Simulated scan of single mutants.
Amino acid sequence: MTAKRRIGMYGGKFLPVHLGHVNAMVMASTIVDELHVVVSYDEEYEEEVFEGTGMKPISAVQRLRWWSEITADLDHVFVHSVEEKQTGKFEDWTAGAKAIKACVGKVIDTVFSSESSYNEYFNELYPDAEHIVLDNDRELFDISATKIRDEGPYVHWHMIPQEVRPYFVKKVAVIGTESSGKSTLVRNLARVYNTSYVEEYGRTYYDKFKDSMSITLESDYHEIAFEHKYHERMQTRTANKVLFIDTEAIVTQYYSELYVGKRLDILTEVAKLQEYDLHIYLEPDVAWVNDGIRVHGDQSIREENNRKLKKMFDEAGVEYVIVSGDYEERFERCKALVKAIMK
C-alpha cells in the first residue's frame, strides 16, 4: 500500500466549479491527511474572461462558499482564497505559490491538478512536493470551466454540482392584481420546465382567516414577505435551471396599501434587495374568479387596481413584460419569454 501523504494542495480559478473539479478534489482527499483547496482570483483578469459570454464574473467569495459547502462534511479538507495575478509571467506564479504556502501554513508535500503540463511549473514552485495529475484525459467528466462559460451552464447542467446550481437558476416573477391568472400560469410553467415554483404565500396566510379583510395588521405583511422569501430561497436549491415565483414584495406592498391603508417601509426595503431575471406582468383581462377571498370583481375596480400596481413597479424602476390575452396566448408568450433568458 502506498504511504499516505500528509499535506496536499489543489488549486484553481474554478470559474465555475464543475463536477470534474469535485471529482479531482475527492480523489485528492483520499490521498492526503489534509487537503487544502485554494481558490485563486484576479478580478481584472476575470472581467476579461467573462466578457462576451453572457455570464457575469463570479466573485472569489462565491467560489469560496461553493467549496465550503461542497466540502462541509470532509473534516480534513480546508478551503482558502488567494489573489494571484494572471498575466502569464512566471513571477506571478511564484508570488501566487508564496501566498498559497503562507495561507496553508504547513509544508505542502503533494500538489494536485488535472494538467500534466503543469509539471515544469510545480517542480520549480514546490520542489519538495510530488505533483499528482488527476483525470488528465477527463475520462469520467469531459468538461471544463471554459466550455461552460462559452456554451452556457444550462447546456452542461448535468455537470454543475448541486451546491453551485442555485447561482445559475433563472428567477421569473409572475406579477399582477388578483384573479389575473398568476397561480395557474406559475404551476403550468413549472410543469413544462420540470422545475419547482413558489406559491404566493399571502394566499397560504389568508387561509388562516375567514376573509382577506382580516389581514389588516402591519405584522401580517411582514410575515408574508419574509416567509415568501424563505420559500423562494428553499425552492431555488431544487430548481431545474429556472424557478417560477408567484408574486413578490412589491405586490405584497400593493396589498398592504389596499388593506392596511399604507405602504410599509420594510416591504420597500425587501423589494430593493430582490433580484429577478424576468418580471411577467399579467393583465387582468381574463374572467374574474370568486374564490371566496377575492373582493374586487367589478371591472372598473380591477382596472383601477391594475393601474395602481403598475405605477408601483414603475416608481420602483422595475422593468416588466406585459402579457395579455386568453390562457393559451399567455402560456405560449411566456414560454417564448423564458426561452429568451435561458442562454
Rank of each mutant, 00 (worst) to 15 (best):
M1H: 06
R5G: 14
R5C: 04
G11H: 12
G11I: 01
K13F: 03
F14P: 08
H18G: 07
H18F: 08
L19D: 09
V22N: 01
N23P: 00
A24V: 09
T30V: 02
V32Q: 02
E34K: 14
L35C: 07
L35D: 01
L35R: 10
H36K: 13
H36R: 12
D42S: 06
E46V: 12
F50T: 03
P57Y: 03
S59Q: 03
Q62I: 12
R63E: 03
R65D: 12
W66G: 01
W66F: 15
I70M: 05
D73V: 09
F78V: 11
Q86N: 13
F90D: 03
E91S: 13
D92A: 10
A95H: 07
A95W: 01
K106E: 15
V107M: 12
I108D: 04
T110C: 15
V111A: 02
S113P: 07
S114E: 09
N119E: 14
N119H: 05
E120R: 14
Y121H: 11
F122W: 06
N123S: 15
Y126A: 07
D128L: 13
D128C: 09
E130I: 15
H131R: 06
V133I: 14
D135P: 06
D137M: 10
E139S: 07
D142S: 12
S144I: 08
A145T: 08
A145N: 08
T146Y: 00
K147R: 15
D150N: 14
G152V: 13
P153H: 10
Y154M: 12
Y154G: 07
H156D: 05
M159A: 12
I160W: 07
E163S: 08
V164W: 04
R165T: 11
P166F: 04
K170C: 06
K171I: 09
V172N: 03
V172R: 09
A173D: 05
T177N: 13
K182C: 06
K182H: 02
S183N: 05
T184K: 12
N188Y: 08
V192S: 05
V192T: 09
Y193H: 12
N194M: 08
S196R: 12
S196H: 13
Y197R: 05
V198R: 06
E199Q: 13
R203Q: 06
T204K: 11
T204I: 12
T204F: 11
K208M: 15
D211F: 04
S212Y: 06
T216W: 00
D220N: 13
I224M: 13
A225E: 01
H228T: 03
Y230G: 00
A239P: 11
K241E: 13
I245T: 03
I250N: 05
V251R: 04
T252Q: 11
Q253N: 05
Y255R: 05
S256Q: 06
S256P: 10
E257Y: 07
L258W: 09
Y259H: 12
V260G: 01
V260D: 01
G261L: 12
I266G: 00
T268C: 05
E269V: 15
H279V: 06
H279D: 06
V289Y: 04
I293Y: 14
V295G: 00
Q299M: 10
S300C: 02
R302C: 07
E303I: 09
E303A: 15
N305L: 15
N305S: 03
M312T: 08
D314N: 11
G317F: 12
Y320Q: 10
V321C: 02
Y327A: 11
R330L: 07
F331H: 13
R333N: 10
L337N: 02
V338I: 14
A340Y: 03
I341G: 03
M342T: 03
K343L: 11
K343E: 11
